[in-house]
Design a protein around this nucleic acid. Sequence first.
RNA 1: GCCGAUGUAGCUCAAUGGUAGAGCAGCUGAUUUGUAAUCAGCUGGUUGGAGGUUCGAGUCCUCUCAUCGGCUCCA
Length: 640
Amino acid sequence: MGKIKLTYPDGSMKEVEHGVTGNDIAKSISNGLAKEALAIEVNGEVWDLARAIEQDATVKILKWEDSSGKYAYWHSSAHLMAEAIEFLFPGTKFGIGPPIDNGFYYDIDMGDHTLSPDDLQKIEERMYEFSRRDVPYIREEKTWGEAVSYFKKKNDPYKLELLEGLKNEKVTFYHQGDFTDLCYGPHIPSTGRIKAIKLLNVAGAYWRGDEKNKMLQRIYGIAFPTHEELDEYLTRLEEAKRRDHRKLGKELELFVFHDVAPGAPFWLPHGMIIFRELEKFLRQELDARGYLEINTPMLVKKGLWEQSGHWTHYKENMFYFESEDTTFSLKPMNCPESTYVYRQKLRSYKDLPLRFSEIGRLLRNERTGVLGGLFRVRQITMDDAHIYCRPDQILSEINQLIELITHFYSIFGLVPQYNLSTKPDNAMGHSSLWEQAEANLKQALESNHLTYILKPKEGAFYGPKIDIQIEDAIGRDWQVATVQLDFVMLPERFELEYIAEDGSRKRPVAIHRAIFGSFERFIGILTEHFAGAFPTWLSPVQVAVLTITDAHVEYGKKIVERLKLSNVRAELDDRNEKIGHKIRDWELKKIPYMLVVGEKEMKNNSVAVRRRKKGDQGAMALDEFVQAIQTEIIKKSLTS
RNA sequence: GCCGAUGUAGCUCAAUGGUAGAGCAGCUGAUUUGUAAUCAGCUGGUUGGAGGUUCGAGUCCUCUCAUCGGCUCCA
C-alpha cells in the first residue's frame, strides 16, 4: 500500500501511510491531543478516530471545544443511555437518539411502562457503570438486507421504518458493549470518555415529529468530560430559573395569571409602568420616523377574514361567535384592517410611503398546551405597522427599519441577529418583484454591515422576510422582530392601488413589521434579561426614600414631592423599621436608587445615595441627585 | 390538542387514610432605630373544582380546570 497526503488546519502537509486513522494522526501530533481527541474531520465530514483514511485528505482533529466534537460526544452519550435502558428495560423499542445543541435525547417506546424520575436515576447510575467499563464504539458497515434482518429479529418497528428510507444503501451499525444501533455516527473512541452525566427530564414526543404518529417517551440528558463542567451547566439552569419572568413577575408584582383567564396576564400597576414606558418609547421613535398611528376594530365580521384568507387558513386560531345571525370574530391580526385605512381615500404616488402603526390587541385561540407565561399568550399586544410603498421605495424603507431595529435593541443592550428568508416553492407574485425585493433586503443588510443567516426558501408565500432574533444576557435566543414584504396578501386580495405619475393605477407593496414582536413577550424577555433589575428609565419605582426615624418623615416627604415634580417615580418608606430592614426590602424589589435621610441630610438639604447592588455611595446635594437621575432616565442609560 | 408531572393561607412549603401546620407577608402593640431581616401578640383555609370509595379523604379512584416540562403548532 502506498502513501497518502494529509493537509492539516495550519496548512501544513504530510505524507503518511495509506489507511492511517485519526488516532494515529492525533498521537503523531501529541499525546495530549490523543487524549482529548473525540473525532476527526476528513474533507469536511466528521469521522470516527478509528476509521482508516484511504485517500489524500484535509483533516482536523476534533476536541470538546469543537461543536462537531461535542455532537459526537453527546451522540455517543445517547447510545450509552440506550444501552442502559435496554439493560434495565429489555424489550424497549428505540426511535431516534440524536445530539442537540445542549445534550442529547433518545425517543423510546416502552409499551405500557411510563418512566418515573426513579427510573431516570437508575438509568443514569447504569450509564456511569457502563462508562466505567470503557468499551470502544465500533463502526460496522452492513448491507441493507443484513440490517433489516437484524432489526426484524430484534422486533424494532421504528428502526425498520428508518431502514425503509435507506433502501439499497450501505448502512452502518455502531456497537458498544452489548448495545447495537443503526447509526450514521460518528462516535467518540470509547464510553470511558463520558465522565459526568445528568438525565434531565422525560417528555412525550411524536414519532418522526408527526402529530398523527404514536407518541414516544423522550429522555433528555446532558454529559460532560468533567464534573465541574456539568456542575457549571446545572448552575446555569438554576440561574435561568432564578430569572424566570413568571417567578419574577409575581415577586416584583408586575403581573399575575389567574385560572379565570388562561393565556392572558392581569397587568399590575408596576408591570403597567414598564408597559407604558415601552409604549412611550415606541411612539416617540415612530413619530420621529414619519409613522401615522391608527387603531382598528377589535370585533369584525367574518367576511373580512374570508377576503384575507384567514378564515380558511387560520380559523382554528380565531375566536368567533354568532350575534343576530352574523358571525363576528375577535381580530387575530391587524394586517387586513390596515388596508381599510389605506383605502379610505384615493392614494397618489406622492403619498407613499404610508407608514401605519398600530398598538393592537389581538386574540388568538392558541391550543391549551402551548401557553406559557408571557411568552405565549392568547391576548397579544403587538407593536405592529404596515408600510405601503412603491417598489422603488423598498430599499429605503428596509434601510430605515434596520436602523430602527438596531437602535431599539441597543437601548436594551440586546444584540439582534438577522435571518433572511427567500422565495419558497409555493411563492405568489411576479418573479421580477421577488428578485428585486430579495436584492433590496440583502443590500440593506449588507450596506448596514450586518451579518445574517440566509434561509433559502423559507419566506412567506407572499414575500421574502427578515426575522430578527435577540440573544439575552445568558446567551439564549428569542425570535422577536420581523420585517415581511408582501406583494400579494394585502395588495392583491384587497385590491390596493395608487395613482402613478403617468396617471395609471398601480399596486403598492406592503411591509408588515414588528419591533418588539409583542409587548407581552418582550416584557417577559426583558424581565429575564435584566433578572428583574430594570434600568432606571424602566424601573417601576426609581427611587425609594428611606427615613431613619419619625423625625425625618417630613423631610422625606419633601424629597419625594420634589422627585415626583421632576418626573421621577419615587416612594417614601417611613415605616417604623430599622434602616437595614428597609434597605433589604427595597434591594429585594430591585429598586435602582435608595435615598437614606436622617439628621445629617436634613441639616444639609442632602441625601445619602445608595445604589442597587452597589451599596452606599455617600451623601449628595438633593439638586445634584435629581439632575443626575434625570439625565440617566432621559438617556435610558443601562448602567444604573 | 398529545405525553408526563404538579395544584394545601397572599407567597414559599410541611402534614402514615385519623384534630390542616410553619416561615415570610398582613394586622395590632412595644421599640425611634444610620446602610441587606427589632421584639411580642393576632388574623388568615370548602386543601383548584365536581363526583366516588371509606366509619373517616389534603392523602385512594374517576372526571374536569389550571400550571409546569416537552411534542405538534406559532402567515
